[in-house]
Amino acid sequence: MKPQQSAPKGFILFRKAEEIGIFCLNAWRVAVESIGLFLETLYWIFCGPFRGKPVDLKALFQQMVFMGFDSAKIVFFVTFFTGIVLAMQSAHQLSKMGGTIYVASLVTISLCRELGPVLTALVIAGRIGASITAEIGSMKVNEQIEALDTMGINPVRYLVVPKLLALFFMLPILTILGDAAGMLGGYMIGVYNLNINSGLYVQTAFKFLTVKDIYTGLSKSLIFAVIITMVGVYQGLKTSGGAVGVGRATTISVVASFILIILADCVMTGIYFFVKI
C-alpha cells in the first residue's frame, strides 16, 4: 500500500472537495428531513383533532411538568448568577464614567432581549434536548418505535406532538423566570454592593425597558423551543447502533441544538436590528 503523503496534490484536493460535497449533501438531507418531521408534527397538531386523534392532554401535562417545573431550579440558578456577573462587570466599566446607576437598566435590557432567552434555551437544550434524544433513541434501538408503528400508532403524533407543544408553552415561561432571576442577581449587586437605593434601582431598571425588549426575547424562545424539540426528536429517530448509538445521538443533538440556537439568535437579532419590527 502506498503511503498517503505520496498521493498527488491534485488528488488530495479532489478528496477534500469530495468530503466537503458529501458534508453539504448530508447537511441538506438532514435539513429537509427535519423540516419534513416538523411539518408532520404540525399536521398532527392541527389536523389530528379532525381525524379523531386530538392531542393527548395527559401526556402534554406530564411533559410540561417535566420540561417546565423540573427545569425551573436550574434555569433560576444559571440566570441568577449570570445577572450577578453582568452587574459586576458592567459596574466596573460604568463606574469609570460615573454611570453606576445604569447598571440596573443594562442588566434588565440585556437579560430580556438576549441573555435570558439564550441562556435558558441553552440550559434546556442540555437538559431536555438530550433527554428527548436519549428517550426516543433508546425506544428506537429497542424496537419500541417500530412496535408503535406496527400497532398503527403514528410515532410522531404519539411521541413528538406532546413534547413540541409542552416546550413551546414552557420555554417562554422559563425565559420569564430566567429574566426575573437575572434581574434579582443584578439587584443584589446593585443594592448590597454598589449601594444603589433599592427603589431607585427598580425604577431605573424598568425606565428604559420597552415592550419590544420583552417580545423580542419571548419570540426568540418560541423559535428555540422548536429547534430544541425537533433536533432532539430527529436525532432520536435516526439513532442506530445500540447504547453507543444512543450516546452518540445525544451528543450530536446537544451540540447541534447549541449551534442552531446561537445561529437562530443571530438571525433574529439581525432581523429585529435591521428591520424595524
Partner: peptide, 19 residues
C-alpha cells in the same frame, strides 16, 4: 392501510414494551 395493519399483531424479539 392502517386499518389493514391493525389486523396484524407483532411480537418483537425484545418484547418492545414501552418502559
Amino acid at each position: 392501510r392502517e386499518k389493514m395493519r391493525r389486523r396484524f399483531g407483532m411480537s418483537f424479539q425484545s418484547a418492545a414494551l414501552l418502559d
